[in-house]
Nucleic acid binder design. Structure first.
Length: 444
RNA sequence: GCCCCGGUAGUGUAGUGGCCUAUCAUGAAGCCCUGUCGAGGCUUCGACUUGGGUUCAAAUCCCAGCCGGGGCGCCA
């Protein structure tokens, strides 16, 4: 099958991707383009492996029949970009069943040597080296597969949320109010004023609940100036954020979240070729996910010897232990509900005395998302701000949205890189984003 | 913010005071080879993070810097 319908007869660099050649094309002239992955020169016959987006094809060239083409091809440095037109011949000796006998060759770009990073070398490079040369690193099929899957799951998120009546919004990333709590923010100069990079769309998406849009989602970047150096933190990351109005309780929000995760997980499962490249399989989780209250969590953890006391946040060890407990109970995914009010942000709806309507979604001991029913009463909201040592005056533009009619609402934030890390069992979150920003990395 | 660890050719490594003119692989350059597919064979090239110090002698030990990794805290 030809790769694109160009709608005209113009000469093109590519009539087929390597994977799209089938018996139909045998003994016809095709054009392929891509990177020279390898050249195996046997003297008077040479095999050039050409890599494109979908795989590789073999170009077989003979020194006696086509001496000029032979010389031109075998002298190319690896990773040069070429376009080859030639006859596609069936050949069972070749892995994908065919080879191309070239008639015309255009050298589109000659690669410098040596490469800073081998694409198909027999030695693995360190993540540091790979990220420094990400454009080459991304030529590796397994690295590329992560981003194809990423594209698929994000697409699935859009589809699911739209089907549920959510509309996509884009809120400012340069913001005036300082921290909504929880994390350090990047400061920047905004003409004569001080501004910050958004740590989340929280305040804006809540404000939108006062508009009648009712259900909004945003898939965007956010920025956190934490000086951590771990394999699961980024200073610039992406998230799926939603906010929905007229909810009865946080249960409505959790319902959307679990179905969203389910839809994304399922769409990843459909990326068969990429999963095979990565050597992974994904087991689509069953919905609904298990709900376990914070109080039950504490009881269970204590029962397994943890020294945690009520009111504390779960540390890494406790989260891991809980992951094991839940796995023994037959589930990787679980909501921790009814968190202590004190450990959740100011906008979280209180429940009873010390509890809240805040929840986290965890997967195997890693926090994937957190959300809650929010406070929609402005007096309570102001009171909670003060209790969290925040100055209501600094949040006046946010509070204003609550004074003129604000329905009950809730939402969540869901980290995309963390999700991919869990989904594909990747050891370092930096692998899940094209150009990671971490404690020390600002380029590329 | 606290704590731990590391830095050797383009890439990845061996080397814990003298046997280092630094190992091996991969790579690059060149030659041989008509069916390779981790091709094979031969030749060549290429490195001790920086600055001090200890010592007869430092890749190796000490101090400082630079660069990096990871754990905790916090979080997505």
């Amino acid at each position: 099958m030809p790769c694109f319908d160009w709608g005209c007869t113009m000469k093109t660099y590519r009539t087929h991707y390597s994977k799209d050649v089938s018996a139909e094309e045998y003994n016809t002239v095709i054009t392929v383009s891509g990177w020279v992955e390898d050249i195996r020169n046997l003297g008077s016959i040479a095999f050039v492996i050409l890599r494109d987006r979908k795989g590789t094809s073999q170009i077989t060239v003979f020194s006696k029949k086509t001496p000029e083409l032979f010389k031109k091809l075998i002298d190319l440095p690896r990773e040069s970009v070429i376009s080859v037109q030639g006859v596609c011949k069936e050949n069972s000796k070749v892995r994908n069943g065919y080879e191309i006998i070239p008639e015309e060759l255009s050298v589109l770009s000659v690669a410098q040597t040596p490469l800073p990073l081998g694409v198909v070398d027999k030695v693995e490079s360190e993540l540091e080296t790979r990220l420094d040369n990400r454009f080459i690193d991304l030529r590796k099929p397994d690295v590329q597969a992560i981003f194809t899957i990423r594209d698929n799951v994000i697409h699935a998120a859009h589809e699911y949320l739209r089907a549920q009546g959510f509309i996509e919004v884009h809120t400012p990333k340069i913001v005036a109010s300082s921290s909504e709590g929880g994390t350090d923010v990047f400061r920047l100069k905004y003409f004569e004023k001080e501004a910050f990079l958004a740590q989340s769309p929280q305040l804006y998406k809540q404000s939108l609940m006062a508009t009648g849009l009712d259900r909004v989602y945003e898939i965007a970047w956010y920025f956190r100036a934490e000086e951590h150096n771990t394999r699961r933190h980024l200073n610039e990351s992406t998230a799926v954020d939603i906010e929905m109005a007229y909810i009865q309780s946080e249960e409505d929000v959790m319902h959307i979240l679990e179905h969203l995760v389910h839809a994304m997980w399922r769409s990843a499962g459909e990326c068969k070729a990429e999963l095979e490249t990565l050597g992974r399989s994904v087991a689509v989780p069953k919905v609904p996910f298990v709900r376990i209250s914070y109080d039950e969590v504490i009881t269970k953890l204590k029962g397994r010897g943890s020294g945690i006391i009520w009111g504390q946040d779960l540390g890494s060890e406790d989260e891991k232990l809980l992951g094991e407990i839940m796995k023994d109970a037959g589930t990787d995914f679980y909501f921790i509900t009814r968190y202590p009010l004190a450990s959740k942000p100011f906008y979280t709806m209180p429940e009873g005395g010390d509890h809240s309507r805040g929840f986290d979604l965890e997967c195997k001991g890693i926090e994937l998302a957190s959300g809650s029913q929010r406070i929609h009463n402005v007096d309570l909201l102001t009171e909670r701000m003060k209790a969290c040592n925040l100055d209501p005056a600094a949040f006046e533009t946010y509070l204003k949205a609550f004074r003129y009619g604000m329905p009950p609402h809730g939402g969540f934030g869901f980290g995309i890189e963390r999700f991919l890390m869990e989904l594909l069992d990747i050891g370092n979150v930096r692998e899940c984003i094209l150009f990671p920003r971490d404690r020390t990395r600002l380029s590329p």
